[in-house]
């Protein structure tokens, strides 16, 4: 334990951009493909290979899809010990791979699973890890510039990792475009390499007793979002009806989620999702910086609030002072009416 930080490493020994393909039950998390597309750009800039890391049980199809989506190679660690995800076997496998193959950059989705994994694996590698990035670039020297909002979104901090490798970053979902896989990836299977599994079940530290998932919405894909905050006062029906009329999704602030009015998967903001819809209607939302951070990329923002001095009006294109329980139903009626006229 008391050894110094380990031998000085030669950063020149480390090459390539890796993307951790997070998957659950054989299905890739959307952020995985977003990162693969971004990783392709970075690898092209540094002149290195893009490598997909696929870990799970019966997930060869994801390794092939990663190649179809632009990875030069995929490393596949396929074993029952990796399903479902657990930090310690995933961490041990990753440590072994990093030691043997020395990646320069590793990108991981900023999901709960991704952050659980990244925090674990960065330690044995003595890697530099930047959390929750929203911008990625490489400088002239090929050094990763990982940028993230800080101070509640008022500033962007750019983090570098000059003397340690790999350079790791968790990246927020919904920030980059995933793109589409190439149609005929005939050589996909050839670009997939199965690696030795270094973990045994008897060495694991935890057991997943039960996993209950499914049926949860993904608001990050919605074109229109109707979001509510404390001003909903327990009644979100106006949000639901307007969202339905506009073909959008309902979202909420942390306050509304904590009150139990809206499910956690619909939370927007620093500790929730980042969304960039075409239209974002903020109803009964004061406009705390933590919330703004999750929706500031929206094309058009509409604010509805009873308080004419609510900060949200400063961050909106169109604002109306009024009670959402009156404004939204009136708006919903108009949307429905015009649609009927059009039909």
């Amino acid at each position: 334990m008391s050894a110094a930080s380990g031998p000085e490493i030669d950063v020149a020994d480390y090459r390539d951009v890796w993307v951790f393909v997070e998957q659950h039950d054989g299905e890739a998390a959307p952020v995985s493909w977003e990162l693969l597309a971004k990783g392709r750009e970075l690898a092209d800039e540094t002149g290195e290979s893009l490598v997909a890391l696929v870990v799970g049980d019966g997930v060869a199809h994801l390794a092939e899809e990663a190649v179809a989506r632009g990875a030069d190679r995929a490393l596949l660690a396929d074993d029952p010990v990796f399903e479902p995800y657990r930090a310690d076997p995933y961490g041990e496998q990753f440590r072994a791979l990093v030691e043997a193959r020395k990646p320069s950059i590793v990108l991981i989705g900023g999901t709960h699973t991704g952050r659980d994994f990244a925090g674990r694996v960065a330690v044995p590698a003595h890697a530099g890890l930047t959390a929750d990035c929203t911008e990625l670039a490489v400088d002239e020297a090929g050094l990763l510039l990982a940028s993230r909002p800080t101070f509640g979104g008022s500033a962007m901090a750019t983090i570098k990792c000059p003397a340690h490798r790999p350079q790791m970053a968790t990246v927020r979902a919904g920030v980059f475009d995933a793109g589409e896989p190439a149609e005929a990836a005939e050589n996909a299977a050839e670009a997939v390499e199965s690696v030795d599994v270094v973990v045994a079940e008897e060495d694991t530290l935890s057991t997943v007793l039960e996993r209950v998932v499914g049926g949860v919405v993904d608001i990050t894909d919605a074109d229109v979002i109707v979001a509510g905050g404390a001003g909903c006062e327990g009644d979100v029906t106006p949000l639901v009806e307007l969202a339905e009329a506009l073909g959008g999704e309902v979202a909420a602030t942390r306050a509304a989620v904590e009150e139990g009015w809206v499910e956690p998967a619909r939370q927007v903001g620093q500790t929730g999702k980042t969304v960039r819809p075409h239209l974002y209607i903020a109803a009964g939302i004061s406009g705390a910086v933590q919330h703004l951070e999750g929706m500031n990329g929206s094309d058009v923002v509409v604010a509805v609030n009873t308080d004419p001095n609510a900060p949200i009006f400063e961050h909106a294109d169109y604002g109306i002072v009024g009670d959402l329980h009156e404004v939204l139903p009136a708006l919903t009626a108009m949307v429905r009416e015009k649609r009927e006229v059009a039909a």
């Binding site: 659950h24 709960h112 997943v208 007793l209 209950v212 998932v213 499914g214 949860v216 956690p264």
Partner: peptide
Amino acid sequence: DVEGGYERVAAA
């Protein structure tokens, strides 16, 4: 709390 639901994990 995991994406899309929850899981119960027994840790040593």
